[in-house]
Design a binder for these strands. Structure first.
Length: 216
DNA sequence: ACCCAGGTGTTTC
DNA sequence: GAAACACATGGG
């Protein structure tokens, strides 16, 4: 199966308009950290609480007490780590970019990526998520979900992050809109059907996936 | 009671 | 270098 074909099938099945809702690029940055190894429902609640307290700015989050932030972040799990990571990001933006995320996101893709990766707690996946969804950079997020789907459909057989990312970016002509849409579609498929334990019953891929109708 | 979630950093062989 | 492990709450 080809990647383009998968894209078209998923695009006909899932609605991913406004898939990552936000009022600001900084909100996406914080969400990208909160969602590490956590479902979006929990992230959404925490973001709402932060909004209610008007905390979604680098200056405010850099200034808040560590314990208070941990209490707010708790429902997302790994809350001590995540509170620390969010404050590292906030302080970084305040110290180096006058609290203006756009100044970081406006740099060249690879420059901005290096800066993000230098912040402890932001790895490749989180950095690329921020670049793609907050900065509109042509970077594909090669999440574990993605390699799982690609392997089961025979599209690309490698777990290596860099190789997987390169493959998709080449296929999609480095178009940020298409890369973001593809990622959203893949995550929707993964969440709905293509889990670790697949739910093949109503999966739109049907026989094109090696797991379809395979006995558990 | 167990498994998994829109990962990352550290430790260990 | 690649496994194995710690980090943690919430939902099925």
């Amino acid at each position: 199966m080809e990647l383009q074909q998968l894209y078209e099938i998923l695009d006909g099945v899932f609605d991913v308009e406004n898939w990552w809702p936000s009022d600001s690029s900084f909100e996406i940055m914080v969400g990208a950290i909160l969602t590490q190894q956590t479902s979006w429902e929990n992230v959404s609640k925490v973001i709402d609480v932060m909004k209610g307290k008007d905390l979604l700015s680098p200056v405010r989050l850099a200034g808040i007490g560590k314990e208070e932030l941990e209490r707010i972040v708790r429902p997302c799990g790994f809350y001590r780590q995540k509170a620390e990571r969010i404050q590292r990001l906030a302080r970084f933006l305040v110290d180096k970019y006058q609290g203006a995320p756009e100044k970081l996101l406006g740099k060249d893709t690879e420059d901005a990526r290096k800066e993000l990766l230098s912040i402890k707690g932001i790895g490749k996946e989180t950095a690329d998520t921020i670049l793609l969804f907050a900065g509109n950079h042509p970077k594909f997020v090669a999440a574990a979900y993605v390699s799982r789907i690609f392997r089961r459909t025979g599209i690309f057989d490698s777990d290596d992050y860099d190789r997987l990312q390169q493959f998709v970016e080449d296929e999609f002509s480095r178009s940020p809109e298409k890369l973001a849409r593809l990622y959203a579609l893949l995550i929707q498929l993964a969440k709905t059907y293509c889990k670790v334990k697949p739910l093949c019953g109503r999966c739109p891929l049907r026989n094109r996936c090696s797991y379809h109708l395979q006995k558990k």
